[in-house]
Simulated assay, not measured.
Amino acid sequence: PGHALKLRRALAALAGSVAGGIGGLFLTGGETARAVLDACGVTGLSLHREVEPGVPLATALGRHGFGVVTKAGAFGDERTMLHCRQALLDLRQAPVFP
């Protein structure tokens, strides 16, 4: 806990420095997600669907559009992260204009 703020800031700075090349983000923890998205210049999220209950899939709005999945830490099973990864991959391959 004593290093959480320092780690969150470092992660946000790293993500912000490569925001133009991000294909998708899986983020846990509200403060971490907010810091990373802010550093990437995200101004909002466009919700698509839930990957699993309580796990939203969205597209980042702002200078760089990429898929975003956010998840609180206290639920899910051993397949949840795999489902999130697949949802992000599927979003990248989806046609822009259906």
Rank of each mutant, 00 (worst) to 15 (best):
E78W: 00
K6P: 01
R9P: 05
L27D: 05
F66T: 12
V42T: 13
G29N: 10
R49F: 00
L91M: 12
A35L: 11
P98M: 13
G62D: 09
E52L: 09
D90P: 01
G62N: 08
I22P: 07
F97K: 14
T28W: 02
A35F: 08
L25Q: 04
A13Q: 15
M81P: 05
L5E: 15
E78Y: 00
A74D: 14
R9H: 14
L89G: 01
A12G: 00
A15L: 06
V55W: 06
L61I: 05
A15Y: 04
G67L: 01
F97T: 15
G44P: 02
A72W: 07
L88E: 08
G16N: 10
F97I: 13
I22R: 04
V55D: 01
A10G: 11
D77H: 08
G65Q: 13
L5K: 12
V42D: 10
V18Y: 03
R34L: 09
E31M: 11
P53Y: 07
S17H: 08
G30C: 00
E52W: 02
G2M: 12
T59Q: 08
G73E: 12
A58Q: 12
R63K: 15
T28G: 13
K71Q: 03
A13Y: 05
T43Q: 04
A33D: 08
K71N: 10
D77F: 02
P95N: 12
G41A: 11
R79F: 04
L88R: 06
G67V: 05
V96S: 11
A58V: 02
A15P: 03
G65N: 10
A72H: 05
R49S: 13
V42Y: 00
A4V: 02
M81N: 15
A35Y: 06
C84M: 07
R79W: 02
Q86F: 06
D90K: 06
P98D: 15
A12L: 04
T43L: 02
L47M: 08
T28C: 14
E52T: 00
V42N: 06
L88D: 07
A87V: 03
A10N: 10
I22V: 15
E31N: 11
A74W: 07
T80Y: 04
L27V: 08
F66W: 04
L89E: 14
A15S: 11
F66M: 08
G65T: 14
G73L: 09
G2F: 09
A35S: 15
V69E: 02
D90T: 09
H64D: 13
A39R: 11
A33H: 02
T28Q: 14
G29F: 05
H48M: 13
G24L: 08
D77V: 06
Q86H: 09
